[in-house]
């Protein structure tokens, strides 16, 4: 009796531990070029939030973001210099760099990816950035 109850309990935990399918927004980008190695959570960039405020051109033509997840070597030093995210995330247009957890909010260890992308759905497991982080 006790044994079967234990098996039941164990099976309950097993079901709870199964990975839940991510329900994140289409085009949310996880950027984990350097974050994991630096002991930070990966960055989650929500395209939907930014496209309500700015057209693609502002970041992808003016600020020089390439159309490639993980293809932009974004570092905190770059951001503080006013490049990439730092063009707005400087405390004037949007929140500045001391709000670490608002950008570095991803599940630790998640690879660089565009959530819900065709490549992610067709080519499993999720692809990794071609550019290895510089040491």
């Amino acid at each position: 009796m006790f044994k079967s109850a234990m098996i039941g309990l164990l099976s309950m935990f097993a079901v709870l531990m199964l990975p839940q399918a991510a329900q994140a927004e289409y085009a949310d980008v996880v950027i984990n070029n350097y974050a994991d190695a630096a002991g930070m959570r990966p960055v989650v960039f929500p395209h939907w939030y930014h496209r309500i405020r700015f057209r693609c051109k502002v970041c992808h033509a003016d600020l020089g973001f390439k159309f490639k997840a993980g293809g932009n070597k974004i570092t905190m030093a770059n951001i503080i210099d006013g490049k990439f995210c730092g063009a707005c995330h400087n405390g004037e247009i949007s929140w500045s760099v001391e709000n670490c957890g608002m950008c570095h909010s991803g599940v630790p260890g998640m690879p660089t990816q565009i959530h819900g992308s065709t490549v992610q759905r067709l080519v499993a497991p999720t692809y990794k950035s071609l550019d290895k982080p510089a040491k």
């Binding site: 839940q20 991510a22 994140a24 989650v44 570095h104 909010s105």
Partner: peptide
């Protein structure tokens, strides 16, 4: 609740 944000992170709940 979306599976890619870490619920254990305080900043997640501000978004």
């Amino acid at each position: 609740e979306d599976g890619i944000h870490d619920p254990a992170n305080d900043g997640t709940h501000v978004l």
